[in-house]
Structures are given as structure tokens and as C-alpha cells.
Amino acid sequence: MSTIQPTRGEIRTGPMLPHETVQKGHHWRTRDDEFDAGKLGMWLFLATELLLFSGLFCGYAVMRLLYPEAFANGSHYLDWRWGGLNTLVLLVSSYTMAAAIRHTQVGDRARAQMALIVTWLCALAFLLVKLFLEYIPKWSEGKRPGVLFDYPYAQHEMEPMWWSLYYASTGIHASHVIIGMGLIGWLIYRNAKGWYGPKNYLAMENIGLYWHIVDLIWIFLFPLLYLIH
């Protein structure tokens, strides 16, 4: 296990940055306890996220078992190239997020900031692809969920169900991406103010964990929606 010492930071004069003066909460014995507790809390929250999506996966599994043909048709309506592009975008953003945490751990605030901004831009790219290349063309063709369905060339009676699950799962996922963008934006702002450093990066770590879970969900949604037929 390699631990890199925070040697990168040069000796500075002038006022302390916020991350150098952060104190522990009054009810904690040590900052380490506080850090571990924060992470445990985040993992529990991630557990709830996974279970939230498990409802959608469950609906997908059941409906797929019942109507395999409608779902095969459905996956053919989707273009794997856009899905694949979005997968790559999210993977890169996951990498930059992890890198941002690493840079913060070794005290390299400027590179961390760079990585965070790339992450944020990737999230934006994901949403733009989703919205302009997937949702809007499909919606205007009448490929809509449930009773809104209005696509005249459908080949299976259960295709509205496919679109319901498609919009529900990608929509709830996209809402998580939007929330993630907000959080990462907040990180960028706070990092610019000097809030994060080797001794204080719990918030970045936790938002990173959240962002990776968003990526993780997409890692499963992509083959389920675009590839399996």
C-alpha cells in the first residue's frame, strides 16, 4: 500500500486556507472518527440509492420475462452508439472524479480543480446527448411512455411498457446526474475558495462516491437497455 506524502505544497506565507483550519464537530472524539462516520453514512445512503434503482430493475426483469419480444424491439429502437458514447463519457468523468480526490489528498489544488471541471463538463455532455440525441427525437416520434404513447409503426402491443421503463429508469438516472452536477459545481466553488486539502476532503470523497454510484447504475442500464435483445 503506497501512501504518498503531501510534499507537493510549497511553503506558503499569508493567511491559512480554510481547509487547514477546519475543526472537528463538537461531538466527535477525533477527526478520524468524524471522517469514517461521514463515509459510513455515505455508504448507507448509496445503499438506499441502489435499492431505489432496484425497483426499476425489478420492473424491467419482470416485464422482460413477460414480454421478451416487446423488449427486444425496444432495444432495437435505441442506438447503441449514443448509449456507448454516454457510457464512455461517464467512465471518464468517474476517472476524473477519482483523480480529483487523489490530487486533493496530495495537496495539488489546481489539478484537482481541473479534474473537477472536466467531471462537471462530462456530466453536462451526458445530459446533452441524452436530451438532444435521445429524448427529444424519440418523444417527437411518439415513442412515449404509457398512455402518452403515439408511435404508429410499433410492432408489439407491449411497446408502451418498454418506453415507460426506458423513460423511468433513464429519467431517474438523469435526475441523479443533474443533482450530481449541482454537487460537483458546489465542490468546484468551494475548492476555489480553498476548502479542500489533504486534511479536509470528506465532502469531496462523499460526492465522489455518489458520482461513482451514478456511473455504476449506468454501467448496468446501458447493456440492459441498449445491448440485450
Partner: peptide, 22 residues
């Protein structure tokens, strides 16, 4: 357990508003 009721009532709201179908 609670997140599952979250997704359940979310689906129910979609169902109620758009006849989602699930």
C-alpha cells in the same frame, strides 16, 4: 427498505398521472 417504497410511490405517481402501465 424505505428506498423501495420511494420508487414504488414514484411509479404510482407516474401511473396516476400518465397511466405509466407498470
Amino acid at each position: 427498505a424505505t428506498p423501495v417504497v420511494g420508487i414504488t410511490v414514484l411509479m404510482l405517481i407516474f401511473e396516476r398521472l400518465f397511466n405509466f402501465g407498470l
